[in-house]
Amino acid sequence: MQYDPIKRSLGKVFNQTPALRIFFYRLLDLLLLRAWYIRRELRKVSKLKQATLNILDAGSGFGQYDYYMSSLGKNWTITGADVKEEQIADCNQFFKKIKRSDRVHFKYADLTKYIEEDTYDLILSVDVMEHILEDELVFANFYKSMKEGGRLIISTPSDQGGSDAHHEHEEDGVHGFIDEHVRDGYNAEDIKTKLKRAGFKNIQTSYTYGKAGNISWRLSMKFPIKALNTTKLFFIVLPAYYILTYPLAYLLNWIDISQTHKTGTGLMVVAQK
């Protein structure tokens, strides 16, 4: 299953005005459980009350988290890095329209080659590392690019089924729900070992998307995306579908983030230089 065609379709709908795009960001913040976990970590950073922060969003995509960070820290300077030129141009245009381009900028960057030595206080990487084969090279580049004491926040699928790659039809040659990943996900100890080799310390890992979160994901993401990949006509009934299902998905998300999970299909990692 491919996410990008759906992303492009949604982008066309919500990118018509800055107000619609901000509304879209807020919908994603409510809908995506990983956004709940990421915003919680970013709020912890904001409570440190550093006067200024220089931030790299490594794999910025739509710019959802850059918008949130620019709202959270008025003196935060944010660089969004991505490999999709069209998305970079789109994000730069949007942040210019909302008059935040003086502190939020997007540029092309191949993370396997990108190094800005001793530059960033915080590096955020959301659902990126599972797409990059040379992950240890990227971790080393992150380390070199961070200031001493800087913080790294990673959200990625775990190896407990986070890419939903293994299912009953796999033996027939049918791909899993997400077929854009180079690995099924990370084991908590495996990613710790790799980050230690890069030089990081104080590495904390926690599983996300436990039982409640996994049900929410299937209800709020997996089924709608599969339906949209089958027929674009599902866009017509999508608002009604979410009106009916989102209250339950919201409750499940709240349950998930309120618990500590021994295992889960997602993984949050926080480390320091």
Rank of each mutant, 00 (worst) to 15 (best):
Met1Gln: 14
Gln2Arg: 11
Ile6Met: 11
Ile6Phe: 11
Ser9Phe: 15
Val13Lys: 07
Phe14Ala: 07
Gln16Gly: 13
Gln16Val: 13
Ile22Ser: 08
Phe23Ala: 08
Leu32Met: 15
Glu41Trp: 08
Glu41His: 10
Arg43Gly: 05
Leu48Trp: 14
Gln50Glu: 14
Ala51Cys: 13
Thr52His: 15
Ala58Ile: 05
Ser60Trp: 01
Phe62Cys: 11
Tyr65Ile: 12
Asp66His: 15
Gly80Pro: 12
Asp90Glu: 14
Asp102Val: 05
Lys113Tyr: 02
Tyr114Leu: 01
Glu116Val: 04
Asp121Phe: 02
Ser125Met: 00
Leu137Met: 05
Phe139Val: 01
Ser145Tyr: 05
Lys147Phe: 10
Glu148Val: 09
Arg151Trp: 12
Gly161Asp: 06
Asp164His: 08
Ala165Gly: 04
His167Met: 08
Glu168Tyr: 10
His169Arg: 09
Val174Asp: 12
Asp179Thr: 07
Val182Met: 00
Asn187Glu: 13
Leu195Gly: 03
Asn202Ala: 06
Ile203His: 04
Gln204Asp: 10
Ala212Ser: 11
Ala212Tyr: 03
Ile215Leu: 14
Lys222His: 09
Leu233Ile: 14
Leu233Trp: 15
Pro239Ser: 06
Ala240Val: 02
Pro247Leu: 07
Leu251Lys: 11
Leu251His: 08
Leu252Ser: 02
Ile255Gly: 03
Ser258Leu: 09
Leu267Cys: 04
